[in-house]
Amino acid sequence: MLRPTGWWLAVKPIDLRCGMDRLLVLVQTQFGRDGFDGAAYAFRNRSGTRLKVLCADAQGVWLCTRRLHRGQFVWPRAGAELFTVSTEQFEWLIAGVDWQRLSARIEDVPRLV
């Protein structure tokens, strides 16, 4: 069963033709993280309709893909190369829901007076 220690989103889109070995090298060289730390790393294509999730630990490597038939995955526009999300936020993301709006603090939501 896939139970990562954390969820990381690669902010910049990549060519999803690459496999698990190339993605592991990307995690280690470009992001400076240990690819075998048990965390899951999600990568998306330029159009935002497909993603790959990579999770590696001492036992092996998971590589999962997901494609939306309609719409796009809501992706962060942060300045950093990696963006961390909670498990709940990731579940909303892969369902195609705007997880950033759902996880906003209630105090930040404008109220009508």
Rank of each mutant, 00 (worst) to 15 (best):
V109M: 02
Q28M: 15
T84C: 11
F73C: 04
R70Y: 00
L54M: 10
A104H: 04
L63D: 00
R33F: 15
I94M: 03
G48F: 02
S47E: 13
R33N: 10
V74E: 06
K52R: 07
G71C: 03
F90W: 08
L24T: 13
W75S: 03
L23N: 08
D37L: 13
D15F: 10
F73Y: 02
A39E: 09
R44T: 11
Q89Y: 09
A42R: 00
G32T: 10
R17N: 06
K52I: 10
T49F: 01
L23I: 13
A80W: 01
A95K: 12
C64Y: 11
R17D: 04
R66Q: 06
G6Y: 01
P13Q: 02
Y41L: 12
R17F: 05
A78E: 10
D15R: 07
A42I: 12
V25L: 11
R67F: 01
E107K: 00
N45Y: 03
V85N: 06
E91C: 10
R50S: 07
V53T: 11
E88K: 09
C55K: 06
W8D: 06
S47F: 03
C64F: 07
F83D: 08
V85I: 13
M20Q: 14
R22L: 13
I106V: 01
E107T: 01
L68G: 01
L51P: 07
G71S: 04
T87S: 14
P4Q: 03
K52E: 00
Q28C: 14
L102V: 12
Q30C: 15
W75F: 03
R101M: 10
Y41V: 11
V74N: 01
L16H: 06
I14L: 15
L93R: 03
L54Y: 05
Q30F: 14
L68V: 04
A40P: 09
G19Q: 10
H69P: 08
I14N: 03
V61C: 12
I94V: 15
F83Q: 08
G79A: 05
D37E: 07
L16I: 11
A58N: 10
H69K: 03
C64E: 00
V109D: 01
L68R: 02
V53A: 05
E91K: 06
R3E: 11
